[in-house]
Nucleic acid binder design. Structure first.
Lengths: 119, 119
DNA sequence: GGAAACGTCAACCAAATGGTTGAATATCAG
DNA sequence: CTGATATTCAACCATTTGGTTGACGTTTCC
């Protein structure tokens, strides 16, 4: 079971943790390197990483003495889906639809234009 | 300025508050009516509503002795945008696309099944 | 083997969170 | 005016959170 939305949102509520996620977006990182830019003890960062890990937002794998941190998109996607299911999202759905078309253009589906709602 | 992501995500981290948002999705509600389904004091719900309000997720307008609570999509959309900007989102686009199809079912396109992820 | 690097653990602390109860404040209805 | 309804306020409490420091266990390197 993926971790509860509680954990995901709680993990995302901290700016340090969001910054860490943004860093991991670029590449996997060792704990020490994650901690480097922050004005905070290594132990504190280690705790933040535990929180992110419990939320399923990252995974950690130890190789030798180095523990590598890796972004795990699924948890955040689940949170995003909860939001999507939320209603205000005509705009976002439309937007997602457009992104979908751009990203997957080669699928070649043809959307009959008569059914479109106004935008 | 819209409230910080900190506040939005923190507000979303509580299941009671998420349930309240889901209720407000259906319709605007008075505080007392929001509180009704919960096994919790009215004061507690009132506090939750303050949290949601500070996060910008709802607005409250007092008319007479009744304070009406209304969903405010912007804050959540901003959080969603933060997530979207995050990178992992081919998957979410797909999901949004499927939702789009469900909502607009009469389009009748055929989704290639190779892209599905298990949940 | 011994020292340095990597990371966590344990104890501690201050502040925030989520709940309670009871009193207080408005507003409406008769 | 009186009483009921709607909501918040204030004080309190237990738990969680986000940080610190110092000791500890591993792994690597010479």
């Amino acid at each position: 079971m993926t971790p509860a939305l509680d954990n995901v949102f709680a993990a995302l509520a901290d700016p340090t943790r969001r910054a860490i996620l943004a860093m991991l977006l670029e590449d996997d990182m060792a704990v020490t390197d994650v901690a480097a830019p922050f004005d905070m003890s290594l132990a504190a960062i280690s705790k933040h990483l535990v929180v992110l890990s419990n939320a399923g937002l990252i995974s950690q794998e130890k190789r030798g003495r180095v523990k590598w941190c890796k972004l795990e998109p699924d948890a955040m996607r689940e949170a995003s889906v909860w939001m999507q299911g939320f209603g205000q999202f005509e705009a976002v759905n439309l937007d997602a639809f457009e992104r979908f078309l751009e990203a997957e253009i080669q699928i070649g589906v043809d959307i009959p234009s008569g059914n479109e709602q106004d935008m």
